[in-house]
C-alpha cells in the first residue's frame, strides 16, 4: 500500500534523489554522500548542503532511509527495505530508457 504511494511519489526520480538514494546503499553522512556522488559522476554533480539536507529529510520522512548511527552530531543514514524497493523500480525504468536510447545513438551516428 505504502509502497504504491511512494512509487507514485518518487518515480521518475530527479538525478539528485537517485544518486542520494543510490549512495545510501551503504551508510553515509551528509558530506559523505556529496563526496560519493561527486566521485560517481566524475565531478559532474556536486551536491550542496541545502539540497542534501532537503533530500535526506524527505527520504527519511517517507521511510526510504533511516538513521544508522549518530556520534558527535554526525548522523549517518542507510536505505530501508522500502528505499531499496523504490530504488529497484527506478533502476528498472532507467534500464529501459537505456535500451531505447542505444539504437537511437547508433541511428544518429
Amino acid at each position: 500500500m505504502n509502497e504504491k504511494k511512494m512509487i507514485k511519489k518518487y518515480i521518475p526520480m530527479t538525478e539528485t534523489m537517485f544518486f542520494i538514494l543510490l549512495s545510501l546503499q551503504h551508510k553515509h553522512h551528509g558530506y559523505g554522500i556529496m563526496l560519493h556522488v561527486k566521485n560517481l559522476t566524475k565531478d559532474r554533480i556536486i551536491l550542496g548542503a541545502g539540497t542534501v539536507y532537503n533530500s535526506l529529510s524527505r527520504l527519511k520522512k517517507d521511510g526510504l532511509i533511516r538513521t544508522f548511527s549518530e556520534d558527535d552530531r554526525k548522523k549517518t543514514y542507510i536505505t530501508t527495505e522500502l528505499g531499496k524497493k523504490i530504488l529497484k523500480v527506478e533502476a528498472k525504468r532507467l534500464f529501459e530508457l537505456c535500451s531505447s536510447v542505444k539504437p537511437l545513438l547508433e541511428e544518429l551516428k
Partner: peptide, 13 residues
C-alpha cells in the same frame, strides 16, 4: 534542528 545545522557545518558553512 541540529541535523540541519550539522549538515551545513559538515560542508564547511
Amino acid at each position: 534542528n541540529k541535523d540541519y545545522i550539522s549538515t551545513y557545518e559538515q560542508f564547511g558553512w
